[in-house]
Amino acid sequence: MPSDRPDDRPALDRSSPARTVGRYVLLVVVALIVLAPVWAILMQSLKSGPDSVRHPRSLLPVDLTWDTLRHAWRAGDLGRLSWNSLVMSVLVTAGVLVTSLTAAYAFAFLHFPLRRGLFAVFLATMLVPAEVTILINKRTIESLGWKNSMVGLVVPLLATGMGTFLLRQVFLQLPQELREAASLDGLGHAKFLWEVAAPLSRPTLAALGLLTFLTTWNQYLWPQSVVDDTAHRTLQIGIAHLDNGRVDNINLVTAGTVIAALPIAVMLIAFQRHLVRGLTAGAVKG
């Protein structure tokens, strides 16, 4: 999925037709293995209740139906849970983009005492595992009266060292003259950030935004820790409760799983390139 390189490989890539066929066969087999779990779950969610009990392992539904998906949607109130997940993810993504932009700008373009020290603290926050912070943040949220609320879910996630770091890297690569020319033109910091620096870092913003959305949508421990009523539950927590512990309801769980994974799968296909940029940020040089 990362960008297909133009075909610039001579000699050794012109392998024999037999080898090419062999590679295709291998690719197809491996692709089937990777996809098999998804296929099995998808088919299970398209079977009716009795069908899923009688033919739990058949890879094609005997009587194909939308009822299971519809039932799971209603029984689990998945409309509301999806909405909660969506609102949470959008707010966190927007917040992280804004706080990262402003902080990165200060670290890249402004001069102030303790700049290096403060930036080191920002970087160090990346090392602290969620297991440590959630324990205490849960109590902070409770004492603020934000338990079981969207505010409580969102606020602690609104700033990251990672976002600040990534955008600062981009800002540092912008030509210094740009800032100087802007200040000669009388452009203030806010205007320069909004009209010059941010637009120039659009690819990184897109990557950071997608990555933040993805990780927030998929959060598990944090929403489980600060929400215990069904009204504010997120999708990831809700789908596990769909079967009420009954094995003949297991196709409802598969339906919920499909519903929870679908938006991300669509997003993945639609924005592959940006997402890959985000995921590989820092991993690959050049």
Partner: peptide, 20 residues
């Protein structure tokens, strides 16, 4: 795209898939 597809699965989604 197929090989990278499991990125779309969260911890909860992957766990429930394998639970089944």
């Amino acid at each position: 795209t197929i090989f990278s597809s499991t990125i779309a699965s969260s911890v909860a989604v992957a766990s429930l898939i394998w639970l089944v």
